[in-house]
Design a protein around this nucleic acid. Structure first.
Lengths: 201, 201
DNA sequence: CAATCATCGAACCGATCGGTACTATCTTCC
DNA sequence: GGAAGATAGTACCGATCGGTTCGATGATTG
């Protein structure tokens, strides 16, 4: 959404527009591949406006990553809850949702993890990534606990490894093979869940 | 190893020294974080020498990544073979080796995958990453076949997801928790292998 | 000794980038 | 209608970077 010239209608709207546009462009081109001028022209804003709202490019990056993290977790939590109460169904729903994401044309891996790799030195970016993985983990811990796993946190870490690993592999696969990354991971995840459930009974 | 002033003793030696130094510095600081001047001063070479041997920074990057990929695969293949013929033992040995790597002070994730993320647009870097994952996959397919898995390639992909996912998580864990990333992944990998073996009998 | 080659060190170039400053314009509010 | 605030657009600045060039130095070879 382009921002009109003298729009003082709602500064928050301007901020949101910049944030939404930047979130996409930073994912598409990478943190260093998208210059401040690019981020401005993509949304039709001026540099002054961008710097007034976010202080610096790094500030914008942090805000954009935080927004994306919340959106992703909301999306996956919703997908899991929509699948009912059965842990296996919830887990399967997460991988199915991921499979849909992998198949999208602009898929380039996990934006948060990618950003942490690109700015490995930047503490704020690493912090956002840490919180993101932590939120992810809690979603999986909940499933592992519902399944009655004897070590739910460990199972959750293993499931998160499958998710992040599948995301990496999907990013390196041809567009055709990305779907199998999600279904392979899904099967492995259900196997792990199954092993835990069986082992207990 | 610094290069002496008029050393025409062995140009190949000069090339190797630059390559080895660059491989480390590019991993430590990232592809864009290490400038050509940094890469030169790190090994005591001049820009002219670097450009004569590698043509461009991208050329050096490709050569460094290719060298690292071969080294990593040689290392893991050796670790697997040293563990004997039993598939489970070979698999466990790989994760144990990875655990040692995760615990090293300078660990920053998988250099190849990180590079592909940083230069997502660069076809040569993506190609090196693709070959790297392919070599990795073949190492795991060999184990999966020896274990008698009914779908060895699928199992290998799942194991590779665990490895790459564990590497990502280890990179985001505190130095203390990196060991558990490897052991968690190891347990999950053996569970998957076990499930396949059992299912068959 | 002379020619050749690889190399270092430093200067240099053009491009790009993050960030700042200024002006003109538009909207809102009083 | 006039003041105040938000904005676009543009020019600009200093720093950094990849890459080139050149002169001086030392080792190798015949």
């Amino acid at each position: 959404m382009p921002v009109a010239k003298g729009t003082s209608l709602d500064p928050a709207r301007t901020r949101d527009a910049i944030l939404a546009s930047a979130t996409e462009l930073l994912y598409e081109r990478g943190l260093d591949g998208a210059g401040v001028a690019d981020l401005c022209s993509a949304v039709g804003a001026s540099k002054e406006t961008l710097y007034r709202h976010f202080g610096s490019k790094d500030g914008l990056i942090e805000a954009a990553l935080e927004a994306r993290s919340e959106r992703v977790l909301r999306w996956l939590t919703g997908a899991a809850e929509a699948a009912g109460d059965a842990p296996a169904a919830r887990l399967a729903a997460i991988f199915d949702a991921l499979g849909g994401w992998y198949a999208e044309p602009g898929f380039r891996g996990c934006a948060i993890v990618n950003s942490a790799v690109q700015h490995h030195h930047a503490a704020p970016v690493r912090a956002v990534a840490g919180r993101h993985l932590d939120r992810y983990l809690h979603l999986l811990i909940d499933i592992a606990e519902r399944a009655g796993a004897d070590h739910p946190r460990r199972l959750a870490r293993q499931l998160l490894m499958l998710i992040e690993g599948a995301t990496v592999l999907a990013d390196h696969a041809g567009t055709d093979a990305r779907g199998s990354a999600a279904s392979d991971a899904r099967q492995a995840a259900l196997d792990l869940l199954h092993a835990v459930t069986y082992r207990q009974k």
